[in-house]
Design a protein around this nucleic acid. Structure first.
Lengths: 134, 134
DNA sequence: AAACATATACGAATGATTTCGTAGATGCAA
DNA sequence: TTGCATCTACGAAATCATTCGTATATGTTT
């Protein structure tokens, strides 16, 4: 069953800037500050030391782990994409939709284009949920 | 078709505290600061002047309109629930899911319990979208 | 070893959000 | 009209997020 996960509550809420960095690490795997900075630079203006500072703070917070072997440290996401998004969704449903998850779903489906295949996947998941209901 | 709405971009992003107030006004209609404060007090600790200040700021920002006829002003939401949520969802899909709306939907459906009826509504919407695809 | 490129550490400015205290206005009641 | 309850206005503190400059360390190259 889709039990609500207890330890979700304990998850830190990453800020927007922190999420950007997590997305890079989730996509590219363990990276140096330079690599992350280069990736971020492609989508917006951001100084090298800004990226560095953010990643240092995230390390303090426990969002990233790091290997300080060589001169340039290697950082790794210490939280999974899945768990993080779960926590974010929880908060978002609460603050923006007063807890009504289905309203959120309706809003998203009406608002964003999804491919035929994506729609299929969603339908299958729905059927699954439907069965569990009976 | 479900065109993306231009003027969504121009919508102010309400903060969490501001959203709380908007929810009260959307639910109860035009209200005084006292009424809003009383409503908020039921779910959390908040000073009267805090609510007042927030509503004054929201008025400056154009999120609320107000009628200053009597001694106690009456405030009204100047943005609709629908439009506001559309803007919030846009931002959220972008920052938390890198633009993948369907991933968000899957995450939400797997995570939150929905009633049989809600699932039905969602399915119907899906079928509708499916037809438009062909 | 001296110079250079590149790293980290860290302080601090800035801006936004949230909070509340205090002062002063307003209207009603004694 | 004096006083009391209640309102608005406003200043300002506290916290957090983001940003970057400067100092210092480290490792490589000449």
């Amino acid at each position: 069953m889709f039990a609500t996960n207890n330890f979700v509550d304990r998850l830190m809420k990453p800020t927007d800037a922190e999420l950007e960095i997590l997305h890079v690490l989730w996509a590219n795997g363990p990276s140096t500050v330079r690599q992350v900075h280069e990736s971020l630079s492609q989508s917006r203006d951001i100084g090298y030391t800004t990226a560095l500072k953010l990643m240092q703070i995230m390390h303090e917070k426990g969002l990233l782990s790091r290997d300080a072997e060589s001169k340039s440290h290697t950082y790794t996401a210490a939280v999974s994409e899945e768990d993080t998004q779960r926590g974010l969704v929880d908060r978002f449903v609460e603050t923006a939709f007063k807890g009504s998850a289905s309203k959120l779903v309706m809003q998203v489906l009406g608002q964003h284009k999804a491919s035929q295949q994506e729609l299929e996947e969603i339908k299958q998941l729905l059927n699954q949920l439907n069965n569990e209901h009976n």
